[in-house]
Design a protein around this nucleic acid. Structure first.
Length: 570
RNA sequence: CGGGGCGUAGCGCAGCCUGGUUAGCGCGCCUGCCUUGGGAGCAGGAGGUCGUAGGUUCGAAUCCUACCGCCCCGACCA
């Protein structure tokens, strides 16, 4: 491609409404332009990067035995009513009526449509397993779109669905996708982790998120420094440390703690550690009060609580709500004698002689003990994991890191097939619901994540597999015949060798061309300038390392081909 | 949906508080000259419903009201 003929509007200054780095660079490098909140046009250069990701995804999906198809984006409400999601999905589902007054929606995901297709077309166990995928624009009417392509309302997604005869077979399909996803992100040249995610009702280790490690990530993940373990913070299970305290139980003692409501204040006042105190937190679980006990220095993980209670929503109760539910002002709540629902983090039952609120203003209790002084409904892992905790798998040291979710695979089981009566006849003649799995990759988000992970102060540094062009040739003086002939010759030769090359033939000064080349992040830059005029030398420079070598055009061709091949992740 | 901020030329901004001829600056764009290894220089030029609507006023970019749009934090979510 010739730069002079390409719609590639680079910006010297960053538009004011872009905050995160990938968004800024995508605007500056002429990738995208915003149409309205969360909705972007892809310009030729951005589309080329998107296509790179798509190609890798296709190759790996096909390799794993999946078949590509394309499902409609406009969907009838009826299907969504069948699964109950028309109500459940909420305002993120964009609904509208067509001219015949039929309720419709824009597809935010395609479980309903694919299940409908499969129930019509597949009837026998002989047809299974089958794995179908598409690469398509999704629309989710996000409350708060942000960060450019990172969280748009309209975005490009690969979504795939597997159908199997049994749970065991579905596990095999799942693992195939797990492996395929690892290959996809490796081939994209990304640093990522596959982490265990919250699999909600399904349970087990059958939900993984693929997280690209980058500071701007919206998720926090815990990774083990010693083994392969990695999990979303929300999901990370806490391994209970140590046996129960063997200390003898002391007598319960009520003490006055005037005005001491916060953990720190109580600890200072009594001269104890937060680890010897139990916090009593009241949550509203779908509106109903539930009390949670955790050690003073720990924090409640609300997702875990939500899953334990099997409710849609948990929020920390406000002071007034706490008082209404318990008759005790916040700060003096404790488990002893409390009459509302009570659940405890597993750590609490191991503690001896701890301090807790006395359920009376300005008073706390000393030497409280589980079982002797109070009972709870459930003991479970309810707190946030911390870097003090050991790895739940190997006991190693944990680290926290930010991640961008670029993929999510999930074993669905028969949830959808049962609701939609999608069944096949098994070898024994019985009708059975398909066992399903669902697998998504945020294609446009992968591009954003790649930029988050690969840039410097001058612009993007594309990993070779995602680069829209592998090399850019700078003709530094288009008015010089000799230089121009050399640049054009190199361009023609490289194109015929199958290299994706951009030729900067614009009538711009050298500085502008250098700046743009850096900004665009093309892995190799070939400069044809006055050194060629003098000694027949052209320059080959790596965007990543900044190293450059002068050489003859012939040598450059061979050298470039070898280095491109070298940087393509197989 | 709660909190905060912002809408003035394609982009980045000033002017607004304290109303007053023709609304400025830098970059970009157009023409010409000149220049060609890190976003040059000179000269000339085009480009504006000051987000929209209403109000106050002799007079509104500036004050008031409503609405619309955009960004950030939170809640939520992939």
């Amino acid at each position: 491609m010739r730069y002079s003929q390409m719609l590639l509007p680079t910006l010297k200054e960053t538009p004011a409404d872009a905050e995160v780095i990938s968004h800024r660079l995508m605007l500056r490098a002429g990738f995208i332009r915003k149409l309205t909140a969360g909705i972007y046009s892809y310009l030729p250069y951005g589309l080329a990067a998107l296509r790179r990701v798509e190609t890798i995804v296709r190759e790996e999906m096909n390799r794993a035995g999946a078949q590509e198809l394309l499902l409609p984006m406009v969907q009838p409400a009826d299907l969504w009513i069948e699964t109950g999601r028309y109500e459940k999905y909420g305002p993120e589902l964009l609904r509208f009526k067509d001219r015949h007054d039929r309720e419709s929606c824009l597809g935010p995901t395609h479980e309903e449509v694919i299940t409908d297709l499969v129930r019509r077309e597949l009837h026998s166990y002989r047809d299974l397993p089958v794995n179908l995928y598409q690469i398509q624009t999704k629309f989710r009417d996000e409350v708060r779109p942000r960060f450019g392509l990172m969280r748009g309302r309209e975005f490009l997604m690969k979504d795939g669905y597997s159908f199997d005869v049994s749970d065991e077979q579905a596990d095999i399909s799942y693992m195939k996708m797990y492996e395929a996803y690892k290959r996809v992100f490796s081939r994209c040249g990304l640093t990522f982790r596959a982490v265990q995610a919250d699999s909600g009702a399904i349970g087990g280790n059958f939900s993984h998120e693929f997280m690209v490690l980058a500071e701007t990530g919206e998720d926090t993940i815990v990774v083990c420094t010693a083994c392969e373990y990695a999990a979303n913070m929300e999901k990370a299970e806490v391994k209970v440390v140590g046996p129960a305290s063997s200390e003898a139980m002391a007598d319960l003692e009520k003490i006055e703690t005037p005005g001491k409501r916060k953990v720190d204040a109580v600890c200072d006042f009594l001269g104890i550690e937060a680890a010897n105190l139990v916090k009593t937190m009241v949550y509203l679980a779908d509106g109903q009060p539930v009390t949670v006990l955790v050690r003073g220095d720990r924090e409640v993980e609300e997702i875990k609580l939500k899953n334990l209670l099997k409710v849609a929503d948990v929020v920390l109760a406000e002071d007034k709500q706490v008082f209404d539910a318990t008759g005790v002002p916040t700060g003096y709540l404790g488990p002893v004698g409390l009459t509302i629902r009570l659940v405890a983090d597993q750590e609490v039952v191991l503690m001896r002689n701890f301090v807790a609120g006395a359920n009376e203003k300005n008073h706390h209790l000393k030497n409280v003990n589980y079982e002797r002084d109070f009972q709870v409904e459930v003991v479970a892992d309810l707190r946030k994991i911390s870097t003090d905790d050991p790895c739940p798998v190997c006991g190693g040291r944990l680290e926290l890191t930010e991640g961008i979710e670029v993929g999510h695979i999930f074993k669905l089981g028969t949830t959808y097939s049962e609701k939609m009566n999608a069944v096949f006849q098994d070898s024994d003649g019985q009708e059975k619901p398909f066992v399903m799995g669902t697998y998504g990759i945020g294609v446009s988000r992968v591009v954003a994540a790649a930029i988050e992970q690969n840039h410097d102060e001058n612009g993007i540094i594309f990993p070779m597999p995602l680069a829209p062009y592998q090399a850019i040739i700078l003709n530094l003086d288009p008015k010089d015949e000799k230089i121009t002939a050399a640049a054009e010759g190199l361009y023609t030769d490289l194109v015929s060798e199958g290299v994706d090359v951009l030729l900067d033939d614009r009538d711009e000064r050298p500085g502008a061309k250098f700046k743009d080349a850096d900004l665009l992040g093309i892995p190799f830059r070939i400069t044809v300038g006055k050194k060629f005029g003098q000694d027949g030398i052209v320059e080959l420079r790596s965007r990543k390392t900044g190293e450059s070598d002068g050489m003859s055009p012939d040598r450059l061709k061979a050298e470039l081909l070898a280095r491109i091949a070298d940087e393509m992740v197989k």
